[in-house]
Structure formats: C-alpha cells, structure tokens
Design a binder for these strands. Structure first.
Length: 571
RNA sequence: CGGGGAGUGGCGCAGCAUGGUCAGCGCACCUGCCUUGGGAGCAGGGGGUCGGCGGUUCAAAUCCGCCCUCCCCGACCA
C-alpha cells in the first residue's frame, strides 16, 4: 500500500477525549474515530489490526472443529422472556419496538438465539457434540462506556457455544476451548493468564477468564508463583486463619470519638492498628439489610457476598437505611446492641480479641469488644478481598497481585439455557435429555486495545508481528529518481514475497516519516535514503528493539521475508 | 443514576469573574520559495452559527434559565 493513497489521519497531539494509552494511540494512529459515547468507527489501519485478531481466532476455532455461523444482532423479546433474562438483564440490554409494536433488543450475547437454533435442528445424540461460533457485533448499553475500545457499547466479539450429551462430554468441550484460547492468545503475541472467574449475568457453574497482563487493566488477578493457582480478585479465596490471640478479654468500654469515622481516623485516634478494628457495613441483599463485619484492614468483596448468601443483587445500603437500623449517623455502626438485622462476618474476624467497633451512636466507638461475649454472629464466610501477602489457598505460598484486561471468558453453562428453552435430544436409549452447554467469548476489538496497552512506548504502538496491520513500512527519505526507483523495486519484491508493506513515498521530511512509522507501530522499518546514495545500502530497523541492520536491497528482502515467516511460524 | 470536569475552525488550547476592534494562538490544511536521516524555515491564504434554544442588554463567546453532548470517579462486563 502506498501511503500517499492511504487513509491514515495521524494526530500529533493526544485528543482530549482519551485517557488510557491504547485509546490515545488508536486515535492518534488513525485507527479509530468516535461516533458516539462507546461507539467507534474503524479506519483502514484499525480494521487491518482487527482483522488480524479475527483471522487468528477463526483459524484456531476452525482447527478445534467449531463451526462458524452468523446470528442476528436484533433479537425478539420472546426468546429472552423464555429464559427470564428479558426482566433480569437490566438496562444494558437495549430494548426497542418495531413498527408493529413488538419488543426487540440488540443482542448483548447470543445464548438465546443459538439455543433456539439448536433446539429446532438437533434431535439426536448422534449430532453431538456441536460447537458453533460467530464473530460479530454486540451491543451492550453500558452504564459507563470508557477507555475507547476497552469498554465500548458496540464491540466485536467472538462467541462460541458448545452442546454436549452430558457433563463429562461438556467438560471435554470446555477443555478444548480453554486450550484453543491459549493458542489464540499465544499467537496474538500477548502475555496473558487464565484465571478462575465469577460467572456473573451469563450464569453457569464454572468459568475462567483470560487476562492480558497490563498495569492499566481494570481487573486484579491473584496468582500463586509456585503452584499456578490464579483467580480474579473477585474469586480469589482468602485464607483467613483464626486469629490466635491469647490476650485476655478486657471489659467493654465506650469511648468518645467526635467526628472520627473512617478506619484510618479511628485507628489513629485510638492509637490501635487497623487490624484491631472491625467495620460494620450495612448492605441491601436482594433488598433486605444485612450487617457485615470486616476487619479494619480488609476490604469487602461484593461478589463473594452475593455468592455466600445466594443472592441476586447486593448493594451498599443508603444512608437513610443505615441510620434507621443503627440509630446513628453513617460511620458509627457496630454489632453490639444491633437488632433487627442479620449479622454475618468475614472469616478473619473470628477469634479477634478486644477489638474496636462503632457504638451505634454518633461520635462514639466501643473498645475491647469480644465475640461472642458482646454480640452474636449468624455465620462466618470468606467475604474479603485477598491482599498482597495473603497465602495461596492451595499451597500456602504468598500470592502475587497483578492487573489484567479481560479478553476472553469461558463458561460451563450446564443445562441452564437448554432446560429453560427445551433444547433436548434423544440419547441412545431413546430418553429425552437436555443438552449440556458451554459458552466462550473473546472480545475481539478489546483484544486489539489490550495488545496496545501491553505493547507501546513513548513513541507509539509496538505491534506484535501477528497483529500488525502491516509487517513492514518502507520509508523513502527523499524524492530523487534513483531512491524512488529502488524503493519501488523493494516494494514490489516484498509484496511478491507475500509481505504486507506500507510504502511511505510521501514528499515529507524524514522526521515526519519516522514519527508516523513509530506511532503506528509497524514492526519493521525499511529505510532507503542517504546511505543508499552513498553506499548502495538500505537499513532495516526493528520497532521494538530499535536494532538496525544494513543490507543491500536484495539482502533486505530476504532478511525480512525470513524474519516474518519464522516469527509467524509458517513456511 | 449519583459525584466531578468540559464543550470556542480538523486537533490541542487562550479569551469568559471586570459584557463593547476577542473571534485569537500553536499544530494541521492550501499556494509559492526553500529544505530533506527523527514532527524544518519564510511569505501568502482558506476555514469558526464560540454545543443548542430562549432570556437580560443599545450591545453576549462573556450574564441568567432550560436542554444536548463528551470526559473522569463508583455499580456492569468481552
């Protein structure tokens, strides 16, 4: 591609609308433009990168025996009512009516559609297992879209669904997809990790997320450097050994703490460490208030709370509810004397001695509180976030916390959808049974953004070769005849070798060309300039390392061909 | 939705508390000259309903009201 004929509107400055590096760079590199909040157009360069991810995904899904389909974006409400999700999915399901006043939605995911398709067409165990997938646009009316392609409302996703005869067979499909995902992200050249995850709105019994490791990731991953245990912070098991404090229980005492509310302030005011405080959080669990006790230096994990109580929804209680329950302003809640509400506690609270709690009274705390002497706890659960230094639940090694971007998610769905929608088959004995399902997503457009988050420097993007929109950028520094001639020959020779080349033959000064080339992150620069005029040599400069090699034009073509082909692992 | 911030040529911004040559700067764009190994220089030039509607006033980018859009922090997720 000749750059002078290409549509590549690069920006010298960071657009004000972008915050994170991938968003800034995609705008600056002329890959995307925003149409509305969370909705982006792909420009030619951005589309090429997107297609690279799609191609890898498609090849690996096909290799795994999955079959590609294309399902509608617009879906009738009836299907969603069958599974109950029409009412449960929330506002991110964008609903609308057609001219005949029928309810429709834009598909945020396709379990209903695919299950409908399969239940109509598949009758026999002989047709299973079946894995279908598509690469298509999804729409989720996110509460707050942000970070460009990282959290858009409209985005490209690969979603796959497996149908099996029983749990054992479904397990095989799940493993197959898991391994396929590992292959996909390896081929994308990304550093990633698969972690245990919460199943959220999709449901199901077990799931893993594939996280691209990046400092700017929205998720926190707890992983064990020794045994390989890795989980999303939402799911990471906190090992809380019972506090073995042998101090004697001291008498309960009320202390005035005027205006002192936060854990840090209370700890400082009373001169005790935060771990000797117990905070009392009032939550609404499916609408009913629950008091939750958490050690002062720990954080409540809402996903764990929801799972522990088998609830659909948990949220912090509003100030009014807190005040009504505790008879005190927010910040002074405590379990002692608290009535009319369930009281549960995190494991780490068990066995604590002589701790501090709110006194359910403005400007006062209790010290030397002891359980069960001073109050009752209905039950203990693991309710807190793992923190740096917590031990691995499997092997006891200290866990490490890192950040990641979720680019893939695999779920075991069981029979949730097949039973709700009557997707059944006849087994070899003629019995009707529900299919056991799994579903598997990859955020294709998000993967492009994640790749940039993980691969950039102060000059711009540094594409992994497998995702690069072009493999080589040919820079002609100068406009004289012989430079143009040798450049054109190089351009043709490289294309003839099957390489993807962007030829910058614009009448721009060298600095401009180098800056643009760095910005758009093409892995190899092939420079034809002064050195060619003097010595007949051209240069190949690697974007990532900055390493430069000098060749004759013919050698340069061979070198690039070999580099690219061997890096992509193909002949 | 709650909290914070912002809308001024394509991009980045100044100007608004003290209404009146304030429609301006840098980059980008067009023409010419010149220059050509890391976003050159000179000269000339095109382009803006100052987010929208309404109001106050002799006069509004500037003051008032309503609305729209975008960004950031929380609940959602590929």
């Amino acid at each position: 591609m000749r750059l002078s004929r290409y549509f590549l509107p690069t920006l010298r400055e960071d657009p004000a609308e972008a915050e994170v590096v991938s968003h800034k760079l995609m705008l600056r590199a002329g890959m995307i433009r925003r149409l509305a909040s969370g909705i982006y157009s792909f420009l030619p360069l951005g589309l090429r990168a997107l297609r690279k991810v799609e191609k890898i995904v498609r090849e690996e899904m096909d290799r795994a025996g999955a079959l590609e389909v294309l399902l509608p974006l617009v879906q009738p409400a009836e299907l969603w009512r069958e599974t109950g999700r029409w009412d449960h999915f929330g506002k991110e399901l964008l609903r609308f009516k057609d001219r005949k006043d029928h309810d429709f939605c834009l598909g945020p995911t396709h379990e209903e559609v695919i299950t409908d398709l399969v239940r109509r067409e598949v009758r026999s165990y002989r047709d299973l297992p079946l894995i279908l997938y598509q690469i298509a646009t999804k729409f989720r009316d996110e509460i707050r879209p942000r970070f460009g392609l990282m959290r858009g409302r409209e985005f490209i996703m690969k979603d796959a669904y497996s149908f099996d005869v029983d749990d054992q067979a479904a397990e095989k499909s799940y493993r197959l997809m898991y391994e396929t995902y590992e292959r996909i992200f390896n081929r994308c050249g990304l550093r990633f990790r698969a972690v245990l995850a919460d199943t959220g709105a999709i449901g199901g019994s077990e799931s893993h997320e594939f996280m691209v490791l990046a400092e700017t990731g929205e998720d926190v991953i707890a992983s064990c450097p020794k045994c390989g245990y890795a989980a999303n912070l939402e799911m990471a098991e906190a090992v809380s050994r019972e506090a073995e404090e042998d101090e004697a229980e001291k008498p309960l005492e009320r202390k005035a703490t005027p205006g002192v509310k936060s854990v840090e302030d209370v700890a400082a005011f009373l001169g005790v460490p935060a771990r000797k405080l117990v905070k009392t959080l009032i939550y609404l669990v499916d609408g009913r208030p629950v008091a939750i006790l958490i050690r002062g230096d720990h954080e409540l994990n809402e996903v764990k709370l929801r799972r522990a109580l088998g609830a659909e929804q948990v949220e912090m209680a509003d100030a009014e509810t807190v005040e009504r329950l505790t008879q005190a302003p927010v910040g002074f809640a405590g379990p002692v004397g608290l009535s009319g509400v369930r009281v549960i506690a995190d494991q780490a609270v068990r066995g604590l001695k002589n701790f501090v709690t709110g006194a359910n009274e403005a400007d006062a705390h209790y010290v030397n509180v002891n359980h069960p002497r001073d109050f009752e706890i209905e039950a203990f659960y693991d309710l807190r976030n793992v923190t740096e230094g917590d031990l691995c639940p499997r092997c006891g090694t200290p866990l490490e916390l890192t950040r990641g971007i979720e680019v893939g998610h695999v779920f075991k769905l069981g029979t949730k959808y097949s039973e709700a929608m009557g997707a059944t088959f006849l087994d070899e004995k003629g019995r009707e049974r529900p299919m056991v399902m799994g579903c598997y997503g990859i955020g294709v457009s998000r993967t492009v953004a994640a790749a940039i988050e993980q691969n950039h420097d102060e000059h711009g993007i540094i594409w992994p070769l497998s995702l690069a929109p072009f493999q080589v950028i040919l820079l002609t520094l100068g406009t004289d005849e012989d430079l143009m001639q040798v450049s054109e020959n190089l351009y043709r020779a490289l294309e003839a070798e099957g390489l993807e080349v962007l030829w910058d033959e614009r009448p721009e000064r060298p600095g401009v060309k180098f800056k643009d080339a760095d910005l758009i992150g093409i892995p190899y620069k092939l420079v034809v300039g002064k050195r060619f005029k003097k010595e007949g040599q051209v240069e190949v400069k690697e974007r990532r390392s900055g390493e430069t090699r000098t060749f004759s034009p013919e050698e340069a073509v061979n070198f690039l061909k070999d580099e690219v082909k061997s890096a992509l692992g193909q002949g």
